[in-house]
Design a protein around this nucleic acid. Structure first.
Lengths: 345, 345
DNA sequence: CACGGCGATGTAAACGGTTTCATAAAATTG
DNA sequence: CAATTTTATGAAACCGTTTACATCGCCGTG
């Protein structure tokens, strides 16, 4: 395939001129430029991006490291990242499923020289040391990090506040036996949500240590299994807070199978507000977070770090997580209504 | 940051030796290799992948061009691609949202030199010419292409057969007023599914031209809107085939809002078998396709083209789409039972 | 008219690796 | 022990760009 030399030869100029035509149009005489362009088209010349990266040490691409790609949540993040990046002419080098530190490090290594920065979401992987090791060579933006790393940008979702609001909503409706289906142990998102739930309970004078927490892994099946567990208990919890919508959906399925009505027999709250949440039966009350926006913001921070004044500080942003009330929690429980006239409808 | 020269200097060898240590370990003396490795660790040397690509003209990465990333379907494809690629040591350069030919071409251009092949899914974009233009420089594997391109691998889902089976299922249950919510016009997947639906109708002696087809775009909202339309018709269709699950879910939401029961008042079939389909209320009868497997197969074909014997033919695979019966279609309609004793339970 | 400045272009040195070829030392062979 | 093969390494070319610097007319100015 044609290289810049072929084009130069065809146009009767030097390779420098060809390069200038493609980069600094204005440095070269109009007629010459035209001649070069024609030659380039004739040769069907496509510049080699690897060579470009090498000389400019600049790739117009960002690396993205994700834990895994399950479900709409991650895919929305990627969508946000991709859209924002493309908008600024950047490409995305993707790599998912990173468990260990070694894994993350290898992935980062394999990206060196082909990306201008790295966005990482490793809720249960990567230690601070790993991140800082990478940071020595590349700008880094963390998504929902479980820790603070020096000199890295970070965008987080306010998992704690969202979970607290969700739980308080249930408490406000009069529920006291509120179980939770948790996310994977060691996952920072799951962690924040669990803490928010417990904080809400504590705020109402309930003992968080006595709370019923069923383990889960953010997948539908786990929600389903946990649901069967919880709904089989006596006394059965009157409400369940699932750490994400996928598990809430699994729970809804379990309830259906057990003949347990939602919200009459048990109230359900999720987290994420997947697109489908509003179309479920019943429509799911959940905590809305803007995964797409999370991705976009991450790129925005990265762009600031890469293109902005070198000394741009490591910005740290938190995106809100707000409760969206639909129908899966029903109306206030009778007992609660009796206690609090304000809640009467 | 340290380059190969720094390592060479630190180890007291030439850069050739360092390179050999990293690539053909066995060509160099054990002691020397050890010394080099130590020097590399001391310098914290990470090879520059762009430079590597330039000399070897080999990047260990594949480009992936997608229409957009909406919903679990696409994210599952990416997941399959990513997993399989990583398994063979390849990275993924992602780029989505390509509408026009020019768009696709630019994206491909921007990848030249940094990928060893291109996987494209452009259900409504890219013409054959565009694809073949790209094919001149890179191996290409198409996902669910609407056309045949010379010398390109292709993996497709049997949309036609799946849609036909779904529709025949409804016909078999006794339904005759079967409406469809279609996918976006010009989208080849949507197209295949619509054709399958019409073929099934025709096979039962019904006139496909008289079929009620509501337009859609594969999103929940469209399914919801189309659902309101369809359920408001008189006479109301007794069954609806949605071109994908997302729209079926929107439809389910609409039915709920209208007080129309599923499956008693209207039967619903979807397409895709999203993870959540089985947990819906009622569990959704749908056509199962293996999006994850689609991605994996695409990579497998690509690997064969890249690593295999140069003359590897352009393989063309079709993945099955099989009906998964759950509860959203209910039991045979009375009229049908009367007509066909075989259907009586 | 000599000269400084400018606009247009070419030359050549990077960028950071891999790989061919040459070479020297060591090992093997008859 | 000489001849030959093998092993280990280095020198240098090369991959396809960008860009600093040099060159060369040409124009306007004093």
């Amino acid at each position: 395939m044609a290289t810049i030399r072929d084009v130069a030869r065809a146009a009767g100029v030097s390779i420098a001129t060809v390069s200038r035509v493609f980069n600094n149009q204005d440095l070269v005489n109009d007629e010459t430029a035209l001649r070069v362009m024609q030659a380039a088209v004739a040769c069907d010349y496509w510049p080699n991006e690897a060579a470009k990266s090498l000389t400019t040490s600049h790739s117009n691409a960002f690396g993205v490291l994700l834990p895994d790609l399950f479900g709409e949540f991650y895919s929305e993040i990627i969508r946000g990242i991709d859209h924002r990046a493309r908008q600024s002419g950047y490409q995305i080098l993707l790599s998912s499923s990173h468990a260990s530190n070694e894994d993350v490090l290898n992935a980062a290594r394999a990206m060196l020289g082909r990306v201008d920065g790295l966005m990482m979401m490793t809720p249960d992987g990567a230690s601070v040391e790993t991140v800082e090791r990478i940071r020595k060579r590349l700008p880094v933006v963390l998504l929902n990090p479980g820790f603070l790393a020096a000199d890295c940008g970070a965008v987080s979702v306010d998992n704690f506040a969202g979970a607290k609001a969700a739980t308080e909503h249930l408490l406000g409706l009069g529920h006291r036996e509120i179980a939770m289906i948790a996310g994977p142990a060691g996952n920072s998102d799951a962690d924040g949500r669990r803490r928010g739930y417990q904080a809400a309970l504590a705020g109402f004078g309930l003992d968080p240590a006595r709370a019923v927490i069923e383990p889960g892994d953010f997948r539908e099946t786990a929600g389903h299994a946990a649901g069967l567990q919880l709904l089989g208990r006596t006394p059965r919890p009157t409400a369940v807070f699932a750490a994400n919508d996928s598990m809430a959906i699994g729970l809804l399925g379990a309830a259906r199978e057990c003949g347990v009505r939602v919200p009459e027999d048990v109230a359900v709250v999720g987290f994420d507000d997947l697109t489908i949440a509003r179309y479920l039966n019943p429509p799911l009350t959940t905590v809305t977070i803007d995964a797409y926006g999370l991705g976009r913001r991450a790129v925005a921070l990265m762009l600031a770090a890469v293109e902005g004044d070198a000394g741009s500080p490591a910005v740290r942003e938190t995106l809100p997580a707000v409760l969206t009330v639909r129908e899966s929690c029903g109306t206030p429980r009778r007992a609660a209504v009796a206690q609090s006239p304000l809640l009467r409808r």
